[in-house]
Design a protein around this nucleic acid. Sequence first.
DNA 1: CATGAAACCTTGCCTATGCG
DNA 2: CGCATAGGCAAGGTTTCATG
Length: 322
Amino acid sequence: MRLTAQEVYDKLVNEDGILQLEGQIKFYLGDVNIIVKQRDVVGNIMQEWLQGWLDKRGIEYAPSENTQMPPDFFLNPDDKTKNLLEVKAFNRNRGPGFDIADFRMYEEEIINKPYMLNVDYLIFGYDMNDDGVVTIKDVWLKKVWEITRRMEDWPINLQIKDNVVHKIRPGIWYAEDTARTDYTVFESLEDFISAIEEAVFQNPKTHNNAGTWKAAFLRSYKQETGIDLSIPRWSEIKDKYDLKSVRKLEKAKSDLAKATDQYEKIKERIQLYHQKLHVEQEKNNVGKVGKIQDDIEKQKKNAEKAKEKINKAQAKIDELEG
DNA sequence: CATGAAACCTTGCCTATGCG
DNA sequence: CGCATAGGCAAGGTTTCATG
């Protein structure tokens, strides 16, 4: 039986009820039996489990030729450019920490094999309790651009050690609270490619290929799919993925509005006090005149403070917009 | 002196990131 | 990959302040 990645997903979730199952990782050597409670191994175990599951359900596949690179499974053994499946797993109580691929290999790979962009990622979000019991909290089927994002100083989320680029790592694609996320995952294949191109340029080790990378990729992609992709410039799309700056700008604007409002109210208040002062001066009410004069001085200080707030907010807006 | 609104502080939670 | 950590955000409580 041959299934697509989507059919595999549906079968796992709907027919086999994977979200209701419980598992445990056991190991024995001699007469010593242990239950593995370390999470490092769960990803590999899940991949092997899926292979066992495919076998048991009689689903055809060819296994990976290179365990370092996606995919893990070719669901169509006769055409190893279609229906490719990559399996990932991560601790659902934390963020996804798995690697997508080594950046340099990936950047070259998608020129040589553009169909790799179409790999389906089957992702398990698991939980492991103190007894080592593993349960699957979530399963997703995703394309690569749906699980990757930019980072502060790079167009794609990269693991960087001693200034050297290593792996592409995922973002959080399932956040229910966007107020807490700084960078959203990419909206399209085109934006993802734009980010890769920019990263090829920014990375010292690939910088020299940057001039030809995009053209080479587009040629290869067209040859394989017949499609002329239109890739936006990174500088034109980068801001929409930076929610942090968007929020900062909004806050600065609201601070400015508030401070301006405050400033106006204080000015009105001072005017009112001046009127009162006038009345009491006419009455020669020395005590009250002194008190009102004190009040006016106080309000003038408040006005200065408000003015400072206004300037600060305006400076922030200029900085973020400029 | 009481009141209500705004400013301020604390705490817990979550994400992003760097390192081993 | 896991883990530690920093920093941002929300909620809730508390303080401060203008005002009647």
